[in-house]
């Protein structure tokens, strides 16, 4: 039932490269105590793996649980069920000292360039923090911070400045520098370029690609924009209401989506070519996907059933398992 079955088709690669990250049957509910037990799951039985050097894109609408998965991996959100393992060791409930060891290898870049750096600390102090926590001497931390700033295209003197003296794009590069300063293996990027203008977005995407190629990094690249994801990711996981709808190679998922939701998502992403966009619009309208606004929370069955144009009685009663269709895994009774 997990996507591991799908990955078996890639058996050779899977065997020779042990997973960098493995997420198994992950369930997350918000709240605590009895409230959590009865709350609907924000993440509901999610499985995926990221291999060394691989970028996996996580897409879905807002509220679909993308950020929650990122937080669960980073230990920022309590996990209600399932497991997360990093380089073969289980970190699902790792305590803070274990997290501190991990912190160097498992890093994050967050969305909002305005709030991801402490406005009251110099850039140098923010960059040095992860090193200082690990006992690196102040002078060395500072020189590493300067090197890293240079690597992301900022002047070394930036160490003594404050975040407010930089533009959004520059701040996002500083966040990337902060994530990469302790030579990580896996970086979780949560909407890392969503708040940026086109040209700045391109700069940060290129920077992420350069650093990945230089250092063999793995990324979990979370974004609501499937085109941005397909620039960076080799594989894509499509999420709807906390469940995986479709997963597979980026080209397959974005160019011949199998799941009705993925089809709707791809068709809704506008392209800057007027004639082609008119075609896409017609295609989107012909799909007949119902608006999210009309829908109340679904009980059992397929989470997409109330919006899906193909839904049948079976769809409202039985949750479809993720099964392999072509190169992809698809959770739909009729894919």
């Amino acid at each position: 039932m997990s996507i591991d079955t799908v990955e078996l088709e890639d058996a050779e690669a899977a065997l020779s490269a042990p997973a960098m990250l493995e997420v198994k049957d992950l369930v997350v509910r918000y709240g605590h105590g009895r409230k959590a037990a009865s709350a609907p799951a924000a993440v509901d039985g999610v499985n995926f793996t990221i291999r060394p050097g691989e970028t996996v894109g996580l897409v879905g609408e807002s509220g679909s649980g993308k950020s929650t998965i990122g937080k669960a991996i980073l230990g920022l959100q309590k996990v209600s069920g399932g497991s997360v393992s990093f380089q073969g060791s289980d970190i699902t409930h790792a305590n803070s000292s274990r997290r501190q060891e991990l912190g160097g290898e498992l890093r994050a870049v967050f969305q909002d360039p305005n709030s991801s750096l402490n406005p009251r600390k110099t850039i140098g102090a923010s960059l040095a923090e992860p090193l200082r926590v690990r006992g690196v001497a102040a002078a060395e931390a500072r020189s590493r911070a300067e090197d890293m700033l240079e690597r992301v295209g900022l002047p070394r003197e930036a160490v003594d400045r404050y975040p407010s003296q930089f533009s959004g794009g520059q701040r996002q590069r500083i966040s990337v520098a902060r994530a990469l300063i302790c030579e990580p293996k896996l970086v979780v990027c949560d909407e890392a370029v969503s708040a940026l203008d086109l040209s700045t977005q391109a700069q940060v995407l290129n920077l992420l690609a350069d650093l990945r190629d230089e250092r063999g990094l793995s990324y979990l690249f979370i974004a609501h924009d499937i085109s941005v994801v397909q620039f960076l990711a080799q594989r894509v996981v499509v999420l709807y209401r906390g469940q995986i709808m479709e997963t597979g190679p980026a080209a397959a998922v974005t160019e011949s989506p199998k799941h009705p939701f993925t089809q709707a998502l791809v068709a809704a992403s506008p392209v800057p070519r007027p004639a082609e966009q008119a075609e896409r619009r017609k295609l989107r309208e012909s799909l007949g996907v119902r608006t999210a606004a009309a829908v109340a929370a679904s009980a059992g069955g397929c989470p997409f059933s109330q919006r899906c144009p193909l839904a049948t009685d079976l769809c409202t009663t039985e949750r479809p398992a993720l099964r392999s269709v072509g190169q992809s895994g698809v959770a739909c009774h009729y894919a």
């Binding site: 920022l76 803070s96 000292s97 501190q100 912190g103 991801s116 750096l117 402490n118 923090e129 690990r134």
Partner: peptide, 22 residues
């Protein structure tokens, strides 16, 4: 709830450190 607090947690800064420093 600022993201830089999340970033510090990912660094392995403990609860007390976060309160005092951030």
């Amino acid at each position: 709830s600022q993201l830089y607090v999340d970033a510090a947690k990912v660094d392995g800064v403990g609860t007390l450190g976060i309160s005092v420093r951030h």
